[in-house]
Design a protein around this nucleic acid. Structure first.
Length: 355
DNA sequence: CAGCCGTGGGT
DNA sequence: TACCCAAGGCT
């Protein structure tokens, strides 16, 4: 057959058959589809998150909760703690809500893209990906990799995000009827390893002959993106309060509100930096406080300069409100998000407990 | 529709 | 170093 007459999908799938990445949640090309639970779990974890970061969490979740019904019956705090460090914690809240909806209908995921789309945490991308990868549906899967590859293939000059409708159209055009799941994963592998943001490896690309951006000589120029906003810096305070209870050292932890920054996660008490421009500076309880240094942390839309105060009184305050005394010995099991894990390391180094 | 929502790795 | 960005979803 004349190779020049092969479709984009045929070339890409041939390349995928030879070069597909081996991933814990993926079935090799040509083998039966993996458990929908594992496909769904991995896709949610992979939202805006790198493969390298997800691997460890995927292994932990599937070990702790081998099926969607197992996950559905897990306590909220255990799941949130297991997600700690992976970021975008609304995903974990939606993950549990979704697992419980699926468990309520017998532990079976719906198989159509439209039905999947109604589940919490499944947007246009994830619903299409699960339908195609787990159930073999012909769905049009568009993620950031596909946006980049398609923008270059067709030399789409319109900047993102305005170009999304056109990208979706073009992706629909080249998505095959059969093996749409492999096609989607092939596009992601291509975008991840070949058609990269900077210095794409066009010499290794199976689609280089049909790539308009390649022909233009400067494929890395695409996709054009709208300029992004500058990140402000906020300041805030967090509080480290220890007490010796039953012969063991404990620290006072709180549970953050169910929505907003780090929603639903265990945390150190703080002065409200998340809710406004800066923290209000107030202490949650009677001092005296000893400064223990600062933690710099960058979130998605602002940077935080957090000062840590250690309670220096002989005995802990009595008006602490809602929270729990957490044993220092098990601090790594508390499920603190990264900001507060950093603050805890600072406190322990300062008090000479450990590092 | 644009802002909110984490984190770590690459350059 | 500072910046870019990743298998997005929700409001």
């Amino acid at each position: 057959m004349d190779a020049s007459r092969e479709t984009t999908a045929e070339r890409l799938l041939d390349w995928y058959d030879a070069h597909a990445r081996t991933l814990p949640w993926r079935a090799p090309p040509g083998t039966p589809a993996p458990d929908p639970y594992r496909v769904w779990l991995s896709e949610v974890m992979l939202q805006q998150t790198t493969v390298a970061a997800v691997k460890e969490y995927f292994a932990k979740f599937t070990r702790l909760w081998p099926s969607v019904s197992d996950l559905a019956t897990a306590p909220d705090e255990e799941v949130m703690a297991a997600w700690a460090g992976l970021g975008y914690y609304a995903r974990a809240r939606n993950l549990l809500a979704c697992a419980r909806e699926v468990a309520a209908r017998g532990g079976t995921f719906p198989e159509t893209e439209a039905e999947l789309r109604t589940l919490p945490g499944l947007g246009p991308y994830t619903a299409a990906a699960v339908a195609a990868i787990a159930f073999g549906a012909r769905a049009v899967v568009v993620d950031a990799n596909v946006e980049r590859v398609v923008s270059r293939l067709f030399a789409i000059e319109t900047p993102l995000p305005a170009s999304r409708p056109e990208i979706r159209e073009r992706t629909d055009d080249i998505t095959p009827q059969a093996r749409a799941g492999d096609f989607a994963q092939a596009m992601m592998d291509l975008g991840s390893g070949i058609c990269t943001v900077r210095e794409p490896k066009c010499l290794l690309c199976p689609l280089s002959e049909m790539c308009a951006a390649r022909a233009s000589g400067d494929p890395a120029r695409l996709p054009v993106k709208a300029p992004k906003k500058a990140k402000p810096t906020r300041t805030g305070r967090a509080f480290w309060i220890e007490a010796r209870i039953a012969g063991e050292d404990h620290v006072w932890l709180v549970r953050r509100a169910g929505k907003g920054m780090l929603g639903g996660m265990r945390a150190l008490p703080d002065d409200g930096w998340a809710a406004r421009q800066d923290g209000h500076g107030e202490d949650l309880a009677q001092g005296p406080w000893e400064p223990a240094g600062r933690v710099s942390h960058v979130f998605s839309h602002f940077a935080l300069d957090l000062r840590l105060a250690i309670h220096a009184g002989a005995s802990p305050p009595e008006d602490l409100g809602e929270g729990e005394w957490w044993p220092l010995e098990k601090l790594d099991e508390a499920g603190l998000p990264t900001l507060f894990a950093k603050a805890a390391r600072l406190a322990l180094a300062h008090t000479g407990e450990d590092a």
